[in-house]
Amino acid sequence: MNTTALGPDKLRGYARLGNLYFFDPHLFIFAGLSLLPTAVLRDGWNWISFVLLSAGYFLVHHATAAFDDITGFKDGSDARNYLGNPSYLRKAESKPLITGQLELHEARWCAWLCAVVGVALVLTGFLLAPHHPVWLIVFSFVAILLCVQYSYGLNLSRYGGQELVLFFGFGLPVVVLYALFTGTIAAVAVMESVLIGLYSVLVSMYSNLNDLEVDRNNGRINLATTTDERGYARVVAALAVAEPVVAIVFALTTSVSWWYPIALIPTYALRIVQYRKGFADRDPLLARQYGRRIHELGVALLVLVNIFALH
């Protein structure tokens, strides 16, 4: 490998390849950490396991994004979406393959390295955790493998699996972390997994709205390409409404504190603004940006309530 491959510009390219600056998918780490009982956090060995698991999931998500960029570069969709339709909210600089910052073989090398090392770290973290039931390990690794296959190999995002992979890939780790360190599955952990999964989906769905024509031309199957505009708007609205419904149902039917649905009221209000930006104002990229901010705010509020209600 020559020196340019290790230079600052090349390193920035690798960071952009995995959406390193798009940190929202990794926020589940803070939700999972704040859910853990104080007794678990006092054990230094648990911290080693937690760091390994977090680093592993981080690399797996980096690999997922990198494989997605590779596919988008090869089928030309990224060039059409980023170079053909430039926007201050979607800059071509975020796609190092179409700008020439990285070569295709370099992207592949990065993606596979992140995937292999990430899976190894997750497996090590699982084995070091105080509880590691076989069913949970198998289930989690199936989810990880599907996540990596999001836009590569099986290419699930092309054949109708995009929303499900995002929902489980970024939400499931919360309840997995809780189960590994406590040996149980608490209602509050399940609720937060569902909410964080919805947060992730309600970012990508506005990206899909913006990329609708390019995705249809490339034969990609997702909710946007398989429904008309009115039907898609209804689906997005239903998912947005599902957020408060989930929190309220868990508060009504389980031991989950009412502080959760109350604290999340700002996110419900912002969903209305997001929806209007995406469908009434026809600015899906701005709506996508709202989705990222809602994701960040939602996780921050969950963490605060976790600290207040559980510690």
Rank of each mutant, 00 (worst) to 15 (best):
T225R: 10
D69H: 13
G56F: 06
S140L: 10
G56P: 10
A129E: 05
P261G: 02
H62I: 15
V51A: 15
I185Q: 02
G118H: 11
I137P: 01
F168I: 06
L286W: 12
D211N: 04
Y21A: 15
E192H: 04
L180A: 04
N222K: 05
A280P: 12
G72I: 07
G219I: 09
D24K: 11
A66Q: 02
D68K: 07
L17Q: 05
E163F: 02
Y150K: 10
V40E: 00
Y232L: 08
H132I: 02
V245F: 05
V235A: 10
L113K: 14
G13Q: 13
F67G: 04
L17C: 12
K74A: 08
F279M: 12
S94Q: 10
S193D: 04
A247P: 00
A115D: 11
I137L: 15
A238Q: 05
S255F: 01
G84N: 11
I262K: 07
K10A: 15
G278A: 13
N217A: 14
I248V: 14
F181V: 05
L127S: 14
D215T: 03
E93G: 05
G219K: 07
A63V: 12
H311N: 12
F168V: 08
V116P: 08
L146Q: 01
A111F: 15
F139K: 04
L304S: 10
T227K: 09
T267G: 07
F308A: 14
I185R: 02
F22I: 09
I221F: 04
L17T: 04
T267W: 02
Y178A: 03
E93A: 09
Y82D: 13
G219L: 06
R288C: 13
F141P: 05
Y14N: 10
L285T: 07
A186W: 00
P266S: 06
N2T: 06
V201I: 10
H26M: 07
A300P: 10
I144G: 05
W259C: 01
V60D: 13
H311Y: 07
L172F: 15
L35N: 01
K277I: 11
L212S: 11
F308E: 06
G169D: 06
L166P: 03
H295K: 07
V241T: 01
R16A: 14
F170P: 00
G18W: 08
H132P: 00
L301A: 07
V241P: 00
L146W: 05
I144P: 08
L102Q: 11
N155I: 08
R282G: 08
V117T: 14
P261I: 03
D24R: 09
R288D: 13
A79R: 15
G7V: 05
Y199K: 04
P96S: 08
L52N: 09
Q149P: 03
A187K: 00
S77R: 09
V148Y: 11
N19Y: 10
A186N: 00
L127N: 11
Y159E: 04
G18Y: 05
